[in-house]
Design a binder for these strands. Sequence first.
RNA 1: GCAGGUGUCGCCAAGUGGUUAAGGCCCCGGAUUGUGGUUCCGGUAUUCGCGGGUUCGAAUCCCGUCAUCUGCCCCA
Length: 428
Amino acid sequence: MDKVSIQPPRGVYDILPNESHIWQNAEISIRSCLKAASYKEIRTPIFEQTELFKRSVGEGTDIVNKEMYTFQDKSDRSMTLRPEGTASVVRAYLSNGLQRQAPPVKLFYFGPMFRYERVQKGRQRQFHQVGIEAFGSEGPAIDAESIVLASNVLQAVGINEFEIQINSIGCINCRPQHKQKLIEFFKPHLNNLCIDCRERFDKNPLRILDCKQDNSQPYFADAPKNIDHLCQACLDHWQKLLELLNGLSVKANINSTLVRGLDYYNRTVFEFVSHSDRLGAQSSILGGGRYDYLVEGLGGPSTPAIGWAMGLERLMLLLGEQKENSFLTFVVADNTDIGLKIALDLRKAGLESEIDYPPTGYNNRNISRQIQQANKLNASLVVIVGEKEIKANEASIKDMQTGEQTTISLDKLVNYVQEKQIKMGCKQ
RNA sequence: GCAGGUGUCGCCAAGUGGUUAAGGCCCCGGAUUGUGGUUCCGGUAUUCGCGGGUUCGAAUCCCGUCAUCUGCCCCA
């Protein structure tokens, strides 16, 4: 039978021709934004040694604990399909000696990520992200820049309804004090916390703040805030960043419970959320922050860094269906040689063109059937070169929208189609 | 990992134990051998996600399994 008996794995899906153009358009807009900010693309492998993710994302995180696609290769080495982009980029930055370049080194990536999770709206096991990473600058200017860039990227693809949430989770010096305060604060409430949070209490009390089950409780509002316990250096950084954003008219809401689920963050963390119901139970479309210890943690020189990643599937959900902007010229001919030659001339000039390929037999279908085919393909123009036209060395051109038809000599055809394309307002 | 909904042609679906499984869209062919989108006619599921069971008889009932959707947790 014509039905394939093998199903695709759970949580993966195909991007089909009727939607791939939306992805392409978004990608073009995003690339142009990133290029304007002088970010350069890096392409890393989609799998790495498992150890890389354990050490960078963190042993205590959900991603490492239950969501990684890990397998043994034929030499019995443990490999993992990347669950996020930053770890691989940092690894590649070090593997290739990019730390020898003049800072900041600004990189971006596009590509699939893998997390073994329950599928639901806005969440699948293979999904795509675009992300940026900037290495080598400690000051808050690059924090501000990356947040503004994220905002610009979203606007460039047509998303204007989003909220920026921002927080500072301090550094290696001030975090222990805050942690201690949290432990003291939550200790009397320990029995009221959910099971997960009781574990977080021991491992990483900061993440209790992130728990959606518990943080609706009234007393959470009184939980010690990281911002109130920042060391002087972190406080300066934080205040300067807020000033910068304010000066740039970027509205960012401080969310003191925002801590993010990956271990490598410090100081600035932020999330872009949408309240659209198109995202189902999800709200976050972009997340990131500073990770000043990761490069050193993976064996490199002490290097401050910051980055973010955006989920493209969620972007697509927000964008919805979009029409493809195309300008197709369909060449109708009695004789395949002539039709194909004209179509190829048009293609040489960068004009999308097509001819009829009969499903069965060797001969062209009649003109009526060929125009029918042109209509099915949504052609803008039909060029007819039948016997009549060939004798006169010309072509009949039909505008499929208006139905109007004119004739033009064959040597002016390509020019005519080009002008027509401009007139009809279709670029590509 | 847990809770609930769903699985009949590429898509949307009727059918709820009894002869050959409605219909619509798409697709294919014709009316129409130099002009599409409208109309009309015709064609396309040995089979109801898969496996097993109950029954004289199952798409319809039961068990299992797989997939999918929605939600919890967490994230993009």
